[in-house]
């Protein structure tokens, strides 16, 4: 795919609020990122309010009803990019089939933030500390991006190219996020470690989805997908950890194995919210807690089943 040059001959409007996706994509094609795409504004306006208040030209996506949707299908849910966190957290299918997403949406800022913040914005703002990306990584979400050139769907795990950089082209908009339902028996674990219990940015967060086979004592990891927040420059999957755990009996996985794998997957740093050492150590503990919870659930299933 070639990258279109967004050399507009006219300056972008100060504020453009298209009524259709086609109009939005046309504007994006003409002005690219000179027209800043906004929906819930909960991240971007924080920047406006600081210092000399430099307000960009805005492509306001909030009138596009087609992006504010939740469409459950037989195998997956497709969520429009401008669906709010509150709408996601309150949706019965998401609560039942994707409970980690309901939980992360409910822990995104406060109630007032959740009413405005969108899932697409949380992804496109590309903060390594964003609350929903770990869950999307663990569930194996796919993103659909659109431009006047057409639409494409890509795996979310490859989307973040570097700190605040993504694979989205300048003329593209994120349209929807498709999240497959986990297979039966898959066990989820989500924990956000924030600076406080609510209205917090994470020190570190983990979402994990573990599939096992075999009976209680001898349960073996058949697949495990992870997503971390605040553990590197972008929301991070942990492919080395997934590989390291594959085929391992749950009972045999120890801290050393997890730590070794995560050393390759994560690159935490010291910043204003925590330290690299804390993040590295808690990342291991959270993975062990996820596996422990998986063991408990397998045992429970064996007992009740």
């Amino acid at each position: 795919m070639s990258t279109p040059a967004a050399h507009a001959s006219r300056p972008p409007p100060a504020w453009y609020r298209p009524g259709t996706l086609a109009d939005a994509l046309a504007a994006r094609a003409e002005w690219g990122r000179d027209l800043v795409a906004m929906a819930g504004c909960t991240d971007l306006m924080v920047g406006w309010n600081a210092g000399a208040r430099r307000v960009p030209s805005v492509l306001d996506l909030s009138a596009l009803a087609e992006l504010r949707t939740i469409e459950p299908g037989p195998d997956a849910v497709t969520i429009g990019a401008t669906m709010s966190c509150a709408g996601i957290a309150a949706h019965p299918v998401i609560a039942a089939r994707l409970p980690m997403l309901a939980a992360s949406a409910r822990q995104t800022g406060s109630v007032a933030i959740q009413n405005r913040a969108t899932l697409g914005g949380n992804i496109m703002n590309a903060s390594p500390a964003a609350d929903n990306p770990p869950v999307l990584l663990a569930y194996g979400a796919r993103l659909t991006l659109a431009s006047v050139r057409g639409a494409r769907t890509i795996g979310y795990d490859a989307f973040h190219a570097g700190y605040k950089r993504t694979l989205a082209e300048a003329d593209e908009l994120l349209v929807s996020i498709t999240i497959p339902f986990p297979p039966p028996g898959a066990i989820g674990y989500y924990r956000k470690v924030g600076t406080r219990r609510a209205q917090a940015i994470s020190k570190i967060a983990l979402a994990a989805l573990v599939e096992t086979s075999g009976a209680a004592d001898g349960a073996v990891v058949r697949g495990a997908r992870f997503g971390f927040a605040s553990a590197g420059p972008v929301p991070l999957p942990a492919p080395a950890l997934s590989r390291a755990l594959h085929g391992m009996p749950l009972a045999s996985i120890d801290a050393g194995r997890v730590a070794q794998a995560l050393a390759a997957d994560l690159s935490p740093m010291d910043d204003i919210r925590s330290t690299a050492a804390y993040r590295r150590s808690v990342a291991v503990n959270l993975v062990l807690a996820a596996l422990q919870s998986a063991r408990r659930e397998v045992a429970q299933a064996a007992y009740t089943g």
Binding site: V46, T195, R196, R197, A198, Q199, I201, I272, R273
Partner: peptide, 16 residues
């Protein structure tokens, strides 16, 4: 003070 924002200087909320 480097964390001179309410996002980065953490006071307790009702949930805490």
């Amino acid at each position: 003070m480097a964390n001179n924002r309410l996002t980065n200087y953490i006071i307790p909320t009702s949930a805490d």
